[in-house]
Design a protein around this nucleic acid. Structure first.
Lengths: 344, 344
DNA sequence: ATCCTCCGTGTAATCGATTCCACGAGGAGG
DNA sequence: CCTCCTCGTGGAATCGATTACACGGAGGAT
């Protein structure tokens, strides 16, 4: 592969001049610039990004460590992050933690070893010592979706409290009183928060959230299925199951279907995170939609701010309820649903 | 950030000894090794991968350029590629082409500039001059899922011919005679191949595939919807629509639903690429499943072979038909379906 | 005792870029 | 005509690692 030396030789100038010509430095004569460009063309030269990074101490690369690529929510997040980063002249390296702290650690370490300019993390757990040390050491970092309390890092996330209240109002309006939740891992903020929001919303209607109605999931389909089976085995099963993410909702659907029961007649279902497929499931699933694209954009902007030495603001964007049929049909006159979206 | 010099100073040895100690070189005394390790520990030293790459001329990184991250098939492919690569000591940088040749080019260029050790590509089109030049120049490269004819690069893909024959047999057995297909872009091999396989399979039953029954899609949901609307507007609409990927099947489902029609009564549906959600759509969708995990693994192995100077073999793994209800219920006695899979 | 080998270590070159500094040519001003 | 400044350019240091080569000392063979 041709290097800058080859270009210099071909153009009959020094490497310094080649570098200057290629980087738009003003003090290069038109003649020299032209010869350099011609040499670049004939040799098919492309600057070695590795060498440049070593010298300039910046890679123009962002790291993104997400909890689970197979989750459509995170896929969309990754996509919008890459889009915004590209617009700002950065590349993105994605690390998939698969909800495993050890894998998360592996990726954070690898990314840091590569000297990425900044790190976007959706932490799977409380954070490894290594990651926390990096944060304290001043590596530009931003948490997205989930965060770690007590760490001084901007957080870009979605606030689902209002949407959860809307959901409970919707469920209550449909006559449901025994409501259960499939929670995410307690080690994650979203795992805890969604339960808290749900409990608070229930309290506003004087409804309890008994321990038996809080199932412990791990944001994966399998756990949604197991927890739902547990609910169905209860002497008094819940009327509604609220899954804290879309994969666990898929598992719940599996479990109900496997027993030969129907949604929503035998058990209603709602999910956090809306995805295109929910329109076409049987029945279409009522869900809380996050402004995923905006989240990704905001996260990149906050991170680039930090890289540039600016503060980098935390952001919380509201989620919204999308009512479909998985909780039962509302009687429009009596119980208008808070939000309704036209079929796409 | 601490460099190798700092470690050398702290341990009271030269940088050469530090490097040797850290890379398991045999001729380092136990005493020196211990002092180095201690210094590494106290300084929290991590080798700079950028510097190492510059010197050794290898990044231990693979590039993966896929057509569309939002497509669950490619997401799963990306995941298995990363898994296998990690097992072999490589990192993976994913580039999402979004079915756009210009974006594909951008990512190939960026990846090559970073001097990745090898490139895995699922080409969106005939290939940019730049990519083809890189292939000819000897950059280790492997095509996965799709390929570019006439380029001397190993291809790891799935062979769907037998599964398509099974599908047509299944459809014919259900009494369907007017079968249509939503094709992928003609610029892609999978776009053309699936149509060819479908046409051949139909021919075996003496069925035609008229031009009006070949819709031109682009592997995105929107095109599936538009094409299906076109089919429905035909004086004699097809009885079955076979979508060449899962996103176009989603669009087809949208279109049928929007007209207030039912699947499979008013129009049957089948898709290439199986995804978990197809179990829960209304109705569950009959699909052709690719051995995605194996594909990813095989692709990485072929690429690593090429990197190591070994030939790197092309692979074609068979896909298989998964019958569900979107084409109608078979009468088990009369028309046993070729393959049936238990609900997960 | 002398010489040769081998072992552990250090010095320095190297990878491919960027960038500071110096230098020569040429034009402007005195 | 001399001096000074500006402009374009080249030489060389630098980033942080790896590795060829040299070297000194210990130990074995003669």
């Amino acid at each position: 592969m041709a290097s800058i030396k080859d270009v210099a030789a071909e153009a009959g100038v020094s490497v310094a001049t080649v570098s200057r010509a290629l980087n738009g430095h003003p003090s290069v004569s038109a003649a020299a610039r032209e010869r350099v460009l011609a040499a670049v063309e004939t040799l098919g030269y492309r600057p070695n990004a590795v060498a440049r990074s070593l010298r300039t101490d910046q890679t123009r690369t962002l790291g993104l460590v997400i909890s689970d690529v197979m989750n459509p929510y995170f896929t969309e997040l990754a996509r919008s992050v890459e889009e915004e980063a590209r617009a700002l002249g950065y590349s993105v390296i994605i690390g998939n933690a698969d909800e495993r702290p050890d894998l998360q650690d592996h990726h954070v370490t690898t990314l840091l070893d590569r000297r990425i300019d900044g790190l976007l993390v959706s932490p799977t757990d409380g954070g490894s010592p290594h990651m926390l040390a990096a944060a304290r050491a001043g590596t530009p970092m931003v948490f997205v979706d989930r965060w770690i309390p007590g760490v001084d890092v901007p957080v870009v996330r979605s606030d689902g409290r209002a949407a959860v209240r809307d959901l409970v109002a919707h469920l209550h309006g449909l006559g449901h009183r025994r409501l259960a939740i499939i929670a995410g891992p307690a080690a994650t903020t979203t795992g805890r928060e969604r339960v808290d929001a749900f409990r608070e919303a229930l309290a506003a209607y004087g409804l309890p959230l008994p321990a038996a109605y809080i199932g412990q999931g791990d944001f994966q389909a399998g756990s949604g299925r197991r927890v739902t089976e547990g609910f169905l085995d209860l002497p008094e099963p819940p009327e509604v199951v609220f899954a804290a993410d879309n994969l666990m909702a898929l598992g719940a659907l599996d479990a109900v279907r496997a027993r030969g029961l129907r949604v929503p007649e035998d058990m209603a279902l709602a999910a956090f995170d809306d995805i295109p497929w929910f329109v076409h499931t049987d029945p279409p699933v009522t869900a809380i939609a996050q402004p995923t694209r905006d989240l990704g954009r905001a996260a990149v902007r906050a991170l680039v701010d930090r890289i540039a030495g600016r503060p980098g603001a935390s952001v919380a964007l509201p989620a919204r309820l999308v009512v479909r049929r998985s909780c039962g049909e509302a009687n429009p006159q009596e119980h208008p649903s808070p939000v309704r979206r036209s079929t796409p």
